[in-house]
Amino acid sequence: MGIISRGFGGRRRDSAPDLPPGQYLTHDFPVLSAGPTPRIPLDRWSFTITTEAGQKHTWDWARFTALPSEEITRDIHCVTKWSKLGTTWKGVSLDTLFADVETAADYVMAHSKGGYTTNVPLEDLLDGQAWIAYEFDGEPLDPEHGGPARLLIPHLYFWKSAKWVNGLEMMHEDEPGFWEAAGYHMYGDPWHEQRYQGD
């Protein structure tokens, strides 16, 4: 236990059940982005999975949204300490997108419009754990929150859920993405409070 803060009681504990360590509950939806919000016209949107052999699997908006979609309700946890419970999304499971992808690589680099990247082990994207989401709360996903479509990996800190995602690149070795290269944790499990390198 840390040093006692004289006169600090804490006000939120009753309303914050079952949160990962160091998180607090929020009811709004904060926006964290490293730069301006890109506006991506749907007729210019595409999403590509590139294997370690260079093979590309690409979807345009029409083909992507014609894939079977799922309703997803999950808690999300941002490394800046806020958590939001029971968020609802619509998206395409990565299991669906990877169905015809042949790969022996274990790691993935997600790429976004604007140059953002983040690294994730492939096993964290499969088996019903991750989606490319394009609706939030029944509405098309706002550009500020990553629309037209973003990665959604709710079991990891939310910086891994790359906004404006446009590609996944398979890698044999784990390599740091944008925030990971700036000192954030390579994996980012909120329940183990893996915020920064060495956590």
Binding site: F29, P30, G35, G114
Partner: peptide
């Protein structure tokens, strides 16, 4: 948005936001 519309390179604009929307 204004900076991008004025012609600034989005890669040169670094942002830090707080609060919800």
């Amino acid at each position: 948005d204004i900076l991008v519309a004025l012609g600034h390179d989005p890669k040169k604009i670094r942002t830090e936001r707080f609060g919800g929307k």
